[in-house]
Design a protein around this nucleic acid. Structure first.
Lengths: 205, 205
DNA sequence: CACCTAAACGGACTGTACCCCGGTTATCTT
DNA sequence: AAGATAACCGGGGTACAGTCCGTTTAGGTG
């Protein structure tokens, strides 16, 4: 009947086999993506490749999109680290407006290079928010916006809209065809320049 | 061997039975959506309800998302008509900046009221662009931006980003749960106000 | 070390989007 | 009006996401 003293301590910590299988699955997923492309990665195939049962795959990631989300999350940590504690203007210390611009450029670069993956994280019937990683982009943009003291009345909505302006083009409106990578790189450059001028326009007083 | 005189005339015009079935299917789809919700509309169910074969449904709409796209397209015509020839500021005649603001408000209203439907038009592996209707929003925003003579260097990218800022929040980041309609209405109001101030900031010189 | 329990595992099962192709029918030609 | 032809139709077939539940195992307990 005894319960842990801390009512909401960490969830009991992942079991060793579970952790091992998770890295196994993520590695297998990366391989399959490289070899076959994102679209060809199936849950059955992935399970077989990793030498595990399908149930295990779903227990770990919940949904197909969940796998890609996990993969993308992992890649994102490097970017987030640069943002949180790297050198300015991306990292702390620079003027908020410059940081906004730098963040947009970095984020676009990031998404352009992982376009397939990012799109695969989209999921019809996502019960909660759910896209690329508004988890990080949105609050960060919101924070910089606030710091910039622009006198924006609707910071929450504006940060939502700017997040969409930043990520939406890559997630929603750019072709998913892997053959068009060159186009996408060019489009990315244009988006980055445009992001900068968008922010500058918003920020000037 | 004779071919039509006009090399690329209309595609041969839909056969009468095909047209009849299309309206049948669209009507059935609307009913099912009202009764069961978007998520519960299946291709089999729809076919049965319309008294047709499953193959027919796919021939007409190509994909599940295609049905919802068709439904949304239909609804959009009314909005587009108001934009193209209705009274200002939404219709022609007003200042381009005012029209941008009015368009954003109208579009947000529209999408808030059809959130479920709009999200259902999203489709993994969409062969071509493919979302809500950038078909109309993007060029229209682009045109108004150009008319406003703001000296924007990247009109194409900016219009893409503004389209995302406008539609992205509804398509990507707002919960799909139909129970939260009230929240969504409030969020829509906030987005609309925020859109206005975003445009005003971009436009002021 | 033997035991116990919660967590992890696996793979059969289900529901559904999407494909295929032989048969049917509308529309055009003469 | 009959024949030709292209489009349409139906429904069974396939592949894949996601669920369920009986079985196995990690890792703590005495």
């Amino acid at each position: 009947m005894d319960r842990p003293l801390v009512p909401f301590g960490e969830p009991p910590a992942e079991r060793a086999d579970a952790a091992r299988n998770r890295v196994l699955l993520l590695a297998a997923a990366r391989e399959m993506i490289d070899e076959l492309g994102v679209e060809k990665v199936t849950m059955d195939g992935l399970a077989e490749r990793a030498g595990l049962g399908k149930g295990t795959v779903f227990r770990r990631f919940g949904t197909r999109a969940g796998i890609f989300r996990a993969l993308l999350d992992h890649d994102e940590h490097a970017l987030q680290a640069r943002v949180l504690s790297g050198p300015p203007p991306l990292g702390p210390g620079a003027d908020p407006v410059d940081r906004l611009i730098a963040y947009g450029r970095a984020r676009i670069d990031f998404l352009v290079g992982r376009h397939q993956l990012a799109r695969a994280t989209l999921d019809r019937k996502a019960p909660i928010p759910a896209a690329g990683s508004p988890m990080f982009s949105r609050p960060h943009i919101r924070m910089l916006l606030t710091q910039a003291r622009l006198g924006v009345p609707e910071v929450d909505s504006l940060s939502l809209q700017l997040t969409s302006a930043l990520e939406g083009p890559l997630l929603l409106y750019l072709s998913a065809d892997p053959a068009e990578d060159a186009d996408r790189t060019a489009a990315g450059r244009a988006l980055a320049d445009s992001w900068q001028s968008l922010i500058e326009r918003i920020a000037r007083r």
